[in-house]
Deep mutational scan, measured.
Amino acid sequence: TFVALYDYESRTETDLSFKKGERLQIVNNTEGDWWLAHSLTTGQTGYIPSNYVAP
């Protein structure tokens, strides 16, 4: 799992909003700078900017 370093507000319907400190499970990280992730807090799935999270 990864932890959010910053808050992120989604800009498209495929993005995932999250708050700093939220735990995220990475589903697919082969898309370059945008990873498909599942929030362990909200249960939602969407794309996140990879530079906003850390292991």
Rank of each mutant, 00 (worst) to 15 (best):
L36Y: 12
K19P: 01
Q44D: 08
T42K: 04
A37F: 03
T42Q: 04
I48C: 02
T1E: 13
S10R: 10
N51I: 09
D15Q: 15
W35D: 00
G21I: 00
T12P: 02
S50P: 08
E31M: 15
L24E: 00
L24C: 02
G32R: 13
G21L: 03
E31P: 10
V3W: 07
Y52R: 06
P49S: 05
A54T: 13
P49D: 05
L16C: 04
G21D: 05
G21A: 03
P55N: 08
V27M: 14
E31A: 14
L5Y: 03
D33V: 11
N28T: 10
S39K: 06
K19E: 05
D33C: 14
Q25W: 14
L36K: 05
I26R: 06
F2L: 06
L40P: 09
S39L: 05
F18E: 00
R11G: 10
Y6M: 11
S10C: 07
I26T: 03
N28V: 10
P55Y: 10
S10F: 03
Q25A: 10
I48L: 04
T12C: 15
P49I: 03
S10I: 04
V3Y: 11
K19I: 07
N29V: 14
P55M: 10
Y6W: 13
R11W: 08
R23G: 05
N51C: 15
V27A: 07
D33Y: 15
S39Q: 04
Y6S: 07
F2Q: 04
D15P: 02
K20R: 11
Y47C: 10
E9I: 13
F2A: 05
T41M: 11
A54D: 07
A54H: 08
E31N: 15
N29M: 15
G46C: 02
F2D: 00
V3S: 04
P55G: 07
L36R: 04
E13Y: 09
D33K: 12
W34M: 13
A4N: 01
H38Q: 14
Y6H: 08
S39V: 03
S17I: 04
F18N: 00
G46H: 00
L24T: 00
E9R: 07
R23Q: 13
R23V: 15
P49R: 07
V53S: 02
W35Y: 06
D15L: 08
T41S: 12
T30V: 10
S50Q: 07
Y47K: 06
V3H: 06
L24N: 00
K20A: 12
I26F: 04
L16V: 06
P55D: 08
L36S: 03
T41E: 14
H38I: 15
G32E: 11
L16E: 00
V53T: 04
T12S: 14
E13S: 13
L40W: 09
L40Q: 07
L24H: 00
R11E: 12
T41D: 15
G43R: 07
N29Y: 14
R23T: 14
T41R: 12
D15M: 10
T1P: 07
W35A: 04
N51A: 14
Y47W: 15
S50D: 02
T41P: 03
E13L: 11
G43N: 09
Y52L: 14
Q44M: 14
S50A: 13
Y6G: 05
E31H: 14
L16S: 03
Y47F: 12
G32H: 12
Y8L: 03
V3E: 07
L5H: 03
V27D: 07
G32Q: 12
Q44V: 07
L5D: 02
T14D: 11
I26D: 00
A37C: 03
P49E: 02
Y52T: 05
K19N: 06
Y52H: 08
S17L: 03
Q25R: 15
Y8V: 02
K19F: 08
E9W: 10
Q25L: 15
E22I: 01
K19D: 03
L40M: 10
W34P: 06
L16T: 04
T1A: 09
T30W: 09
V3I: 14
T42H: 03
G21Y: 05
E31I: 13
I48K: 00
T42D: 03
T45Y: 11
L36Q: 05
D15T: 09
F18V: 08
W35I: 08
D15Y: 12
W34T: 08
N29D: 13
G32P: 15
V3D: 04
S17M: 05
Y6Q: 09
H38E: 10
R11Y: 09
A4G: 06
W34H: 07
I48W: 00
K20G: 04
T14Q: 12
E22M: 04
E9K: 09
G21M: 03
I26H: 01
T12H: 13
N51K: 13
Q44R: 15
P55S: 09
S50H: 08
N28Q: 10
P49Q: 06
G46W: 01
L36H: 04
D15I: 11
S17P: 07
V53R: 01
T1Q: 10
G46R: 01
N29L: 13
P49H: 08
L5G: 02
Q44G: 09
N29F: 15
D33G: 13
I48S: 00
V3F: 09
R23W: 14
L5F: 03
A4K: 01
P49L: 07
W35E: 01
G21V: 00
E22C: 04
A54V: 14
S10W: 03
Y6P: 00
W34S: 07
E31S: 14
D7M: 03
E31G: 14
I48E: 00
Q25I: 15
L5C: 09
Y47D: 02
R11K: 14
A4R: 01
E22F: 02
G43K: 07
K20H: 05
F18R: 00
D33I: 11
S10D: 02
H38F: 15
S39G: 02
D15R: 12
Y8C: 04
S50V: 08
E31K: 13
P49W: 07
R11P: 08
R23F: 15
V53H: 03
L24P: 00
G32V: 11
G43T: 03
L16D: 01
T12Q: 11
Q25C: 15
N29R: 14
D33R: 12
Q44L: 14
A54F: 09
A37I: 04
E13F: 09
N29C: 13
D15S: 09
A54K: 12
A37T: 02
T14V: 11
G32M: 10
H38L: 15
V3C: 07
T30E: 11
E22K: 01
G46E: 00
V27E: 07
T42M: 03
A4T: 06
L24V: 05
Q25Y: 15
V3L: 08
L5Q: 06
Y47E: 03
I48V: 12
F18T: 02
Q44P: 00
Y47L: 09
T14Y: 15
P55Q: 11
N28K: 10
T14H: 14
G43I: 01
H38K: 15
S10T: 06
D15A: 10
I48M: 03
W34I: 09
R11M: 13
L40V: 07
F2I: 04
E31Q: 14
E9L: 10
T41V: 14
T14L: 12
S10M: 06
L36D: 01
T45R: 10
Y52M: 13
G21P: 00
A54E: 13
Y47N: 05
E9G: 04
D7K: 04
R11H: 11
S50N: 07
E13I: 10
S50F: 08
E9Q: 12
G43A: 05
N51W: 15
S17E: 05
D7F: 03
P49Y: 06
S39W: 01
N51T: 12
N51M: 10
E13A: 13
N51S: 14
R23M: 15
T42N: 06
W35C: 04
F18M: 07
R11Q: 14
T30D: 13
F18D: 00
Y52P: 02
I26V: 11
L5P: 02
A54G: 09
